[in-house]
């Protein structure tokens, strides 16, 4: 076991103080939140938990805060473009999309609906984490993950890890030893 120092979770920062959103801001946030994820179109930005805020700085200018899942996630640019397009269509002339890093996104930010949709799509959803601190790494034999994620196809937990990194940074590649199907696991972050 390699224990990383200081793994106790720091208190989660709250959104900086701002006025309660107006009905129009709520509406725009709902619209922006319905934009599908560019790489996993079964779930929306709201369900993925990456839409942090939508506010109007003037009647025709909306400012949107998005947070990346991974710092280098190339889908972020597409998300920004799609949100801009959606808000333009809703009649907002100017849209500014900001990238915010604090507090860092975690897979716990995915909504219950989002988790269910991932599973229905064939991706083993991330399991809840109890801290937001760094991950404790266990240095064990290869091809294990404790506890192993359940196969999204047959539900068996008799699965093995093929690779920590799959088609995107946020997923790991596993194989079910029961039904023999390979599957992606949205890894905990």
């Amino acid at each position: 076991m390699v224990k990383t120092p200081g793994t106790e979770a720091p208190p989660r920062p709250t959104t900086p103080h701002r006025q309660a959103p107006s009905p129009l801001e709520e509406h725009l946030r709902t619209l922006a939140g319905q934009v599908p994820d560019p790489e996993l179109p079964v779930i929306t930005l709201a369900e993925l938990g990456v839409l942090r805020d939508v506010r109007l700085t003037s009647p025709d200018h909306a400012q949107v805060d998005l947070t990346p899942t991974y710092t280098g996630c190339p889908a972020l640019q597409n998300m920004a473009t799609d949100v801009e397009h959606t808000l333009h269509t809703a009649g907002i002339t100017h849209v500014t999309v900001r990238t915010v890093l604090t507090p860092p996104w975690t897979t716990d930010d995915i909504t219950p609906d989002g988790l269910r949709k991932l599973a229905d799509f064939g991706i083993a959803p991330p399991r809840p984490q109890h801290t937001t601190g760094p991950i404790t790494i266990s240095l064990g034999p290869t091809r294990t993950d404790t506890p192993p994620p359940a196969c999204p196809h047959c539900g068996s937990t008799d699965t093995e890890l093929l690779s920590r990194f799959s088609s995107t940074a946020c997923k790991a590649l596993h194989r079910c030893l029961n039904c023999r199907e390979p599957f992606d696991h949205f890894k905990e972050l």
Partner: peptide
Amino acid sequence: RALAAKAAKETAYHREHAELWTLR
């Protein structure tokens, strides 16, 4: 420091990848 809070979680996977391959 704000970036580090994100990067710490990402680099944990990089480290684990290297450790597992070192073992193998």
